Computed example of a mutant assay.
Amino acid sequence: MPSDDDHPGSRISQQRKLAGYTQRGLAMKAGYSYSLVHQVESGHKAASPDFTAACARALRIDVAVLTGQPYMTELQQDRLAELIRPIRESLDLYDLGADPDVSTRETPRLVEAAATLCREVRATHLHKAARTLPHLITELTTAAHRKPSSELWAALGSTYRTAHDITIKLGFYDLSTIALDRMEWAAQRASDPVLSAVRQYMRGLVYHREGEHTIGLRLVDAGRQLLVQADETPESLAVAGQLHLGATVIAARARDEDVVRTRLAEAKQIADRVGEMGHVHWLSFGPTNCAAHEVSALTEMGRHGEAVAKAKEIHMPASWPASRRAHVWIDRGRSEMETGRNDAALVSITKARELAPQQTRYHPGARATIEGLVRRQRRTPDALGHISAWLGQ
């Protein structure tokens, strides 16, 4: 068992005491058993993402306070910490207009640069993407102000979405929220309701992480209302389907099985109509993503045996982005750990690491799973010890 006292359980204990709650009081307010609160705080059980979010909500603090994000030691080791300040500045200086010292490429090349940057993130090349991002935001902003066009504003909106993806994967949730605000700013100028709907989907998932399920579902439904302004196309249908999938996972964490069942069925109907679509504002909607979200929903609801069985049925195409494939392996690993399949769980997290090392290193689900495996072992196997050390645990 780890001797380090700096883990989510110890942070929950500290914040609980500061708020004046007993363990039983926190358990009642968070909706979990006293036994689980006691085991997590004492370090005998890992804090799952849903449990941590529930405690953060009960204590009225950001979930990052309990997870310890961002993981600065690991970010410094990966030379990612130094890239955050330029990203922060590029998000803050959005309203200065065209930069007189910046020369810009032609519109087609800028649009392709925005698409390339998004591909880098989906391939989880976070260091490369983070280094490129600030200048591309400046260049696109300058070009859009000099020669305004829907195409350029949409490309800028896509790039702000990429900024959200990078910052949220690295644990800088304050920046991820700002990036989504900037995304809407650009989407309005592009007159693109579909892009605005994607932004609402991503906002909903931010509140899902914080355990604010009602707000998350309202945001997702606001995205669906925005699509009323758009013509019905395969693109708008795919975004509508993705909004249903977002609602599925949010409702799952709230343990609302009726909403999970209804929204998942709606998404599957749309997926049957449009098939696999991997290039709709860089969403990977289709039957495979519906299956992946079903695994996530079952995991969130604590139906881990079903989640493992469903995960084994998914055949992820090689064309699927590494970020999505790794996420499925992380969900599978978490459910395998919870059902006592310790060796299988380690294999799943290892596969996620092989596919998307930087994403896996900073993923709360992967870290909670490995922490849980370590705490279950009387003697830590070498492979588990290595990945635990790599995660900084």
Rank of each mutant, 00 (worst) to 15 (best):
P2Y: 05
P2H: 07
D4H: 10
H7C: 04
S10V: 05
S10Y: 00
R11S: 08
S13W: 00
K17V: 11
L18E: 15
G20R: 08
G20F: 08
T22Y: 06
Q23C: 06
G25F: 06
G25H: 09
A27L: 08
S35W: 00
H38G: 07
H44G: 12
A46P: 05
S48D: 09
P49T: 07
P49M: 08
C55D: 10
A58D: 11
L59G: 08
D62H: 15
D62W: 01
A64F: 01
T67M: 10
Q69L: 14
Q76M: 10
Q76A: 12
Q77L: 12
L80Y: 06
L80R: 04
E82F: 00
I87C: 02
R88C: 05
R88E: 15
D95V: 02
G97R: 02
A98L: 04
D99I: 01
D101N: 14
D101H: 13
R105Y: 00
P108D: 05
P108S: 11
V111M: 08
A115M: 00
A115I: 04
C118R: 11
V121Q: 04
A123Y: 04
A123I: 03
H127D: 07
K128V: 13
T132K: 10
H135P: 01
E139C: 06
L140H: 01
R146S: 09
S150E: 12
W153P: 02
W153S: 03
A155F: 02
L156Y: 02
T159C: 06
D165N: 09
I166Y: 01
T167Q: 04
L170P: 06
T177I: 08
A179V: 02
L180W: 03
E184H: 13
Q188C: 10
S191L: 01
D192F: 05
D192H: 07
L195P: 02
S196M: 13
Q200S: 13
L205I: 10
Y207G: 02
H208W: 10
R209W: 05
R209D: 12
R209Q: 13
E210D: 14
G211N: 07
G211S: 11
T214G: 13
I215M: 12
R218G: 09
A222Q: 13
G223T: 11
G223N: 08
E232F: 00
E232W: 00
T233N: 08
T233G: 09
A238Y: 02
V249K: 02
V249D: 03
I250P: 02
E257A: 15
D258W: 02
V259Q: 12
V260R: 05
L264C: 09
L264H: 15
A265W: 04
A267S: 15
K268L: 14
I270R: 06
D272T: 15
N289C: 11
E294Q: 15
T299E: 14
E300R: 12
E306R: 11
K312T: 10
I314K: 07
H315I: 11
P317A: 14
A322P: 01
E336S: 08
E336L: 10
M337F: 13
T339N: 09
G340L: 07
R341T: 06
K351D: 13
K351L: 12
Q358K: 11
R361K: 15
H363T: 12
P364Q: 11
P364K: 09
G365L: 10
G365Q: 09
G365F: 06
R367D: 05
R367W: 04
E371D: 15
R375D: 08
R375H: 06
Q377H: 14
R378G: 12
